[in-house]
Each structure stands twice: as structure tokens, then as C-alpha cells.
């Protein structure tokens, strides 16, 4: 494994030399890095600006000042408002967000691991594995807004409107296809031999699944859980339609931050950051899988 990697590395170095790209002129390097720096600033500036703004006074928030203590006096006014003055609402949204994201991800993990194992390990005839997998994935491609009306009626009939349970159920549908596809890939890549050995020793199918396959697929399970947590945390439309008052999440809190009354940027910035910071932290843990998750599990990075 390591040998192979070294070999690849060497080949790549050789390729660079032969293509002459390594001997790029100083000007070429400068342009290359300039482009990279510009792109990085472009990508990072909005986040940076939000962080800065969240520590500004009402008056400072409109000024193009960037360096705290030097150009403006930082204040905790925004954060104080979010967690103390409007603390009750913030904490309720935060609690709902965590509850909804963790429950729906758990459900995705459970159903997804089962279905992924079934599609990755066994052969279906007639309606083939491929067809089933593609049908499952097709559920992910519907625009959410196209199904919110029946969801709204469905949940009204079940008397689940404004109940986190309704949103948990909706988010599970949204993320389940991803869970199935990623788990299917993981189980397919695991060697069969261990499970076969377990059968010979008299282990049941369920036993083999829970004692052997599942522990081996642990990295995949973590990836599925965290990815669907992120997507559920970010989801907006279903929460907007299915929750009004009690079952609001962080995205709804953000949407309500910019009132008609005020240009209270410090408030918007700090509330937005409450939504952003947790997912950014989670992203660093699953950076390898996020792109895969966003391509419906279709492309491996």
C-alpha cells in the first residue's frame, strides 16, 4: 500500500519534470499563487466578515473596518442579544435543530445500513440490485418544494404539524437515499471471507451482520451519520412548512433575524454563525466524504 503510494508519488514528480511544469518561471508561479490567493479571499471573505460584524457595535457595523481593537472596539453586544436577550428562542431552536438532526440521522443510519447491506451483499433477480439502488436514489432528486404540499396535508391529518417528529420524518426521506448508497459502497468493499467464516462457525445472518459486517463498516457509519446530520441541520423548506412556532430550527431563526425594523447586522451575523460554526466543525471531520455526499454518493473523491 505504502509502496504503491510512493511509486505514484515518484511517477508524478517525474511527470512534472518532463512536462516542465516544475520549472515554471517565477512570474508563472506568482500568477498561480495570486489566482489562488484571490480565490481563497473570495471564498472566505463572507465568513470572515460575519465573524467581524458579530463583534461590532450597532454604529460600527456599517463601517468598512476589519481589525478589532485597532479599527473598532469589539463588543459582545450581538452575542449577548442572541444568547441572553433572545436566549429562550435561540436555545429552543438550537435544541430542536440538534434533536431533529440527530434523530433523523439515526433513522437514516439504521434503515440505510440495513438496505445498503442487502444491496451490497445479496443478489436480487428480476428487479435487479441496480434498479433498486437507482430507484432509491431517484427519491433524492425531487425538488423538496414539489412534495411539501402533500407533506403539509399528511402531517396535518396525523396532527403532527409544528411537531419535531414531522420534520424528523421528512429529513429522513431526504437523506435516506444517500445513506443507502454510501453504505452499499462500503459493504461491497468489505471482504466477504470474514462473514463466510462466521457462517461456517454457525453464526446466523443477523449475527454476522451485527457482529462482523457492522463493526468493520464503522467509518462508513460515521460518515453517513455526520453527513446526514449536516444536511438535516441545513435544511430549510420542510421546517418552514411543517413547523411554525414550537418546532423551529436554526435556519428558521436565521431567516427571521433580519426584521423589517432594523439593519441590525451584528444580530444577523451572530445568528448566522450559530448555524455555520457547528457544520464547519463537523465538515472538517468528514472532509473526505462531503463531496461524495453532495454527489449523491456517486463520485468518489
Amino acid at each position: 500500500m505504502d509502496n504503491q503510494r510512493n511509486e505514484r508519488k515518484n511517477l508524478r514528480r517525474q511527470r512534472r519534470i518532463e512536462l516542465g511544469t516544475q520549472k515554471r518561471s517565477p512570474l508563472g508561479w506568482t500568477i498561480l499563487w495570486l489566482i489562488m490567493v484571490v480565490f481563497t479571499i473570495w471564498t472566505m471573505f463572507p465568513i470572515f466578515w460575519a465573524v467581524i460584524t458579530s463583534f461590532k457595535h450597532t454604529g460600527d457595523a456599517f463601517n468598512p473596518t476589519f481589525i478589532p481593537w485597532v479599527q473598532f472596539k469589539p463588543t459582545l453586544q450581538g452575542w449577548h442579544f442572541v444568547f441572553i436577550t433572545a436566549g429562550e428562542r435561540t436555545l429552543r431552536s438550537l435544541k430542536n435543530s440538534i434533536l431533529i438532526a440527530s434523530c433523523s440521522s439515526a433513522l437514516v443510519l439504521l434503515l440505510g445500513a440495513f438496505a445498503g447491506y442487502s444491496l451490497g451483499r445479496f443478489v436480487f433477480r428480476g428487479w435487479k440490485n441496480k434498479d433498486i439502488a437507482v430507484w432509491i436514489l431517484s427519491n433524492r432528486m425531487f425538488p423538496p418544494v414539489a412534495v411539501v404540499i402533500p407533506y403539509f396535508l399528511f402531517m396535518r391529518t396525523l396532527r403532527l404539524l409544528d411537531n419535531p417528529l414531522a420534520i424528523i420524518m421528512a429529513h429522513t426521506v431526504l437523506n435516506l437515499p444517500l445513506g443507502v448508497w454510501l453504505m452499499m459502497d462500503f459493504f461491497r468493499d468489505l471482504p466477504r471471507d470474514l462473514e463466510d467464516a462466521a457462517f461456517i462457525d454457525g453464526c446466523s445472518h443477523l449475527g454476522a451482520f451485527f457482529r462482523i459486517a457492522l463493526p468493520l463498516a464503522a467509518p462508513g457509519l460515521v460518515a453517513v451519520y455526520v453527513l446526514s446530520f449536516i444536511f438535516s441541520w441545513n435544511e430549510f423548506i420542510f421546517v418552514l412548512v411543517l413547523g411554525f412556532h414550537k418546532a423551529t430550527t436554526i435556519p428558521i431563526l436565521i431567516a427571521g433575524a433580519l426584521t423589517s425594523k432594523g439593519l441590525e447586522f451584528w444580530k444577523v451575523a451572530s445568528i448566522s454563525l450559530i448555524g455555520i460554526i457547528p457544520v464547519v466543525i463537523l465538515t472538517t471531520f468528514v472532509s473526505k466524504f462531503l463531496v461524495r455526499g453532495l454527489t449523491f454518493g456517486a463520485l468518489k473523491e
Binding site: T43, I47, T53, F62, F236, S272, T283
Partner: peptide, 28 residues
């Protein structure tokens, strides 16, 4: 860079919208 570039797409889209709305305000 890989981790850095993942940030925009991992953010809640509604938060992205409001961050930009702040920056794009016509007067301030």
C-alpha cells in the same frame, strides 16, 4: 485548501443568503 473550500457548501444555504444580503445592502 480542500477543507477550506468545503466551507461554503457545508454552510446552511439560508445563512449564506443572509451573509450576502448584509454585504450587498445598497446603502450600508
Amino acid at each position: 485548501f480542500r477543507v477550506l473550500f468545503l466551507i461554503p457548501m457545508a454552510c446552511p444555504p439560508i445563512a449564506v443568503a443572509f451573509l450576502w444580503k448584509m454585504m450587498l445592502h445598497p446603502d450600508i
